[in-house]
């Protein structure tokens, strides 16, 4: 996998974790079941996300910021040839590439970064 794509994936996963921790059912469960201090956890996650965003290569970071300013999901999976950001079909050549995820690719329709999974 392309190292920048891996970094993007990790950032997106952290943002998912961060978003969920800010929502009532998840927050309540984290506090009740795991005794998590959510306020502290949120600030740790925010700091980590900011640090990882800064570490992105400048061109990738520019593209990342443009999308992140508009929507929460910057990296989306491609499942069975469909971009799960905008639900538009990805060109077959791209979706079936043998070197999948070895390049940082964006959806031509919505601009989000693409991660190909089975």
């Amino acid at each position: 996998m392309h190292p920048e794509l891996e970094a993007l994936l990790e950032i997106q996963d952290l943002k998912t974790q961060r978003r969920e921790l800010g929502e009532t059912p998840s927050r309540d469960m984290q506090e009740a079941v795991f005794g998590l201090s959510t306020e502290e956890a949120l600030s740790i996650l925010d700091a980590k996300i900011a640090e990882m965003e800064e570490a992105l290569a400048p061109d990738v970071r520019g593209r990342y910021r443009r999308i992140a300013n508009k929507q929460p999901r910057v990296v989306v999976p491609v499942i069975r040839g469909t971009c799960y950001g905008c639900f538009v079909q990805i060109p077959t050549a791209l979706a079936s590439d043998a070197d999948r995820n070895e390049e940082v690719r964006s959806c031509q329709s919505c601009g989000r970064f693409l991660y190909l999974i089975d």
Partner: peptide, 8 residues
């Protein structure tokens, strides 16, 4: 537990 883009 965690959520991640790598699982469908």
């Amino acid at each position: 537990h965690c959520r991640s883009l790598v699982v469908n």
